[in-house]
Design a protein around this nucleic acid. Structure first.
Lengths: 329, 329
DNA sequence: ATAGTTATTGAAAGCGCTTACATTTTTGAT
DNA sequence: ATCAAAAATGTAAGCGCTTTCAATAACTAT
């Protein structure tokens, strides 16, 4: 069943059917009814591919995340999808695993499918080949980078000030009397680098000690957090507080500390990052930096829509995080 | 840049360009090179919409989930996406919130976009209008239901035997000497109904008591689990073990029990469902039913692909869950 | 009724590609 | 060199829609 069949059945031209389909006002009530009757009678479904070919848009946005199983990406992707859906767009979701080549492959496929725009959530810090590819793709459609930065034509960034987020964590601990604070870096993304930066400057500003083990690179996850504590203890590093790059890593640290019969927060205070549901699952409840995932996602969609609408959009938008204080600190 | 430009630049016909683009063997090496040179020179990107219009496929699958922020759906969606990607398909992800009308709206939009197939993850138990809509859509493309059941032409189901999953939980607790077991029902989906069924039959088979509060309907989540414990205590219901419909609800129950200074598992044993990462975050570690999320998702994709390939596919596939024993029981 | 408007409708081109079929070129056997 | 068969290439139709522009119908005021 296509527009021709409908037209002949209703005794009108295909142009008229198209007008009815698109709610054009310039069609009389009488013929409109004739057409809609046929439409309903045959359960006609318009072919968006054919339409897409003409108008050169499929009303679809590509969303690239690292891994949707990570609650942070899930929340961002969810919010993006819901917001875009209200605007009439569907989402093509891709999990890149953070691999640059994989990201490029996905972007190319989405470019062929002529998505109207791209939202890249989370970015590995600096990869020249990837950056070139992104800039190239941006010639075909607008790109919004969430917690990633790339200055180029038709690319917009919305980022949470993760550096500041960590620094307020440091400030809070310092005010509580802590001096020996350890930071657990559990990724190499743009965000992760930013967090480390916030930790360093926060510590230096307060003249707190930055020693060999003050910044520890670990695997993200429960196991990574646990291993970190083990490593700290074995190396006799003195510490009274830990800040982790993600809640799940903080949970791992808490587990290990409890296994060592350390009391939290009395012996060691722990702070996480993301304010994910996990922060409320562990015991004690996790103090954590709220990086405003929903707000960031909503902002990304708004930026994209503004670009579509031809509005003026700043190339960089910054979101300010909060500290959510619970019992782990 | 389109196929015509490439053709004239390379001095061949558009048919030849198309053949090169599609790796057709019937083109001489000489002309192939002429064409690919032009392709690369101009960074030509094929237009998948135009192609889609001809071949009537966009190599895209629609995936409807309830809420991707729920780790269960995230894991299933992730696995589906990765598997489909390997087969050359992209995924349109939709979060329906479990609402039937929303589901119908999404399905209609995806039908217009001519997705090659649909995977529906999780289903609300029995909604006549929805079922009719699904059957209708199935006339246009194959549909795979994950943990949902609907017997109709071109619809295939893959379900985890949740009923059995709960029953092995009951059996395990019974063997440990528990008699007063409470089940926390935290949803109304097909799965949720199945779990309740498994609990009832498991209890009856072992002649364990089913009282007024043995099955408690609660909100899914930490709060729901906590409220359930509160309710049980207030109503003086005697119980030594709790099975929850989801890990996150079990975590809520554990929190409340700990607040009441109950020891776990000595005073009360707790079992969750899903074997999600959350089960490893709480304290104590959660014993939980592993419902084989990845296996289910992989199965769903395999079914869809088999249908595409014209292979014979059973209309119903069942996955058997496991019990993962940890310290909460 | 009539000319001038305005509201409806239709004809046809074109979006960028695939593919059946026709045509041309190449190859190999005689 | 000649012809049949095979390989390579080209022609043109068509996928289902939107949209411009032209044509017609329906009003309006004279």
């Amino acid at each position: 069943m296509n527009i021709y069949n409908v037209a002949s059945e209703a005794g009108v031209s295909i142009a008229t059917v198209s007008r009815v389909l698109n709610n054009s006002p310039q069609v009389s009530e009488k013929t409109r009814k004739k057409v809609t009757d046929v439409l309903e009678k045959y359960h006609y479904t318009p072919n968006a591919i054919a339409r897409g070919l003409v108008v050169n848009s499929m009303k679809t946005i590509g969303v690239l995340t690292i891994d949707i199983r990570d609650l942070y990406y899930a929340t961002v992707a969810y919010t993006i999808e819901q917001d875009l859906s209200k605007l009439g767009y569907n989402v093509m979701l891709c999990n890149t695993g953070g691999d640059a080549q994989e990201k490029i492959n996905y972007m190319k496929r989405l470019a062929e499918k002529k998505v109207d725009g791209l939202i890249l959530v989370g970015s590995v810090f600096k990869d020249q080949k990837l950056d070139t590819a992104i800039s190239q793709i941006a010639k075909q459609m607008p790109i919004v980078m969430v917690n990633g930065l790339l200055e180029a034509e038709n690319i917009y960034s919305i980022i949470c000030d993760d550096s500041y987020g960590i620094s307020i964590g440091v400030a809070y601990l310092h005010n509580k009397g802590h001096r020996d604070i350890v930071y657990l870096q559990d990724a190499e993304t743009y965000s992760a680098q930013s967090k480390v930066h916030g930790f360093k400057t926060g510590m230096l500003k307060r003249e707190l000690p930055l020693k060999a083990h003050s910044i520890l690179k670990v695997e993200k996850g429960i196991n990574g957090g646990s291993m970190a504590v083990k490593q700290l203890v074995e190396s006799d590093h003195n510490f009274s507080a830990i800040i982790a790059g993600e809640d799940i890593t903080a949970v791992g640290a808490i587990k290990a500390l409890k296994a060592l019969h350390k009391s939290i927060p009395d012996d060691v205070a722990v702070i996480g990052f993301n304010n994910s549901i996990i922060a409320q699952c562990c015991d004690p409840d996790l103090t954590t930096v709220d990086n405003k995932m929903e707000m960031t996602a909503t902002g990304a969609v708004r930026i994209l829509n503004d670009v579509f609408k031809g509005r003026n959009v700043p190339s960089k938008t910054v979101i300010t995080p909060d500290l959510v204080i619970r019992t782990s600190s």
